[in-house]
Amino acid sequence: MKSGSRLERTLEAGHFAFTGELGPPQGANVEAVRKKASYLKGIVDAVNITDNQTAVVRMSSWGAGLIAIQEGLEPNYQMVCRDRNRIAMQSDILGAYAHGIRNMLCLSGDHQQFGNHPLTKGVFDIDSIQLINMVKGMRDDKKFLNGDEIDGAPQIFIGAAANPFAEPFEWRVHRLAKKVSAGADFIQTQCIYDMNMFREWMKQANDMGLTEKVHILAGITPLKSGGMARYMAKNVSGIIIPDEIIERIVQAKKAAEEGIKICVEQIEELKEMKGVHGIHLMAIEWEHRVPEIAERAKLVPRPQV
């Protein structure tokens, strides 16, 4: 075991993992975090705590992660490269680990231009792949990035993101390979709507032997409305939503119900896909619907590991 986290134990035992997502509030509203956590407790193996997502200032990921631990949830601490240099990153990793955080997701981060401080100075001292490598060095070699010894190395289960749906498509599996060689233990993908494209990417990953080295959790975001589907398809770079999915949501009498139905169908399909070791459900501001989705997709009860 690298970290002994519940997520790691679940995956290493060969179970199909299930992770959720919790977006911290724009303030120190502890109750908001507890409320979101209450929907996910006992339902997911770990919950991603986003790090100032879309570059909007929020309660820190590790801070909200500690509240999640108090609520009986295991956090997956997201860290982006946008806001911290290597000194701050390593320091935060030590602090987070000291307080019981065992999983991390290493990301580049949404560009600051999209957020609520668009003219801040983006740091990007290191990139996401270098961050993965740094955390691995801290854990396995017990060394900081500069080579100095660590007094109490953080045992972190290292996660990374992958997006099979952004250009250049044929390069995406190689980028996955780079993340694996940098030290990623698990991958959470961008939200999947185009199942054919995803299947092709998974085939490439299987053919390259990557799925034997890394656990891939397929990313799913339920669509809440026709408007949301159209907006995401048109405006979010790196997300592809096939027309037939958009049509299904748009035509449906109850769009939200249809969104959940599609989501459950996708999960069923992904469960059967070679190399997919779990689901990462990003129900954005829809945490309260997660129990129902988990139930209908037969992802609960979770295995006790």
Binding site: S108, H111, F124, I129, P168, R175
Partner: peptide
């Protein structure tokens, strides 16, 4: 690169090959 990545590209490259920003 808007994020000055040395191991790019990030996941935001558009269909047309443009930057997310």
């Amino acid at each position: 690169c808007a994020k000055s990545l040395f191991n790019g590209p990030c996941g935001g490259t558009s269909r047309e090959g443009n930057c997310e920003v």
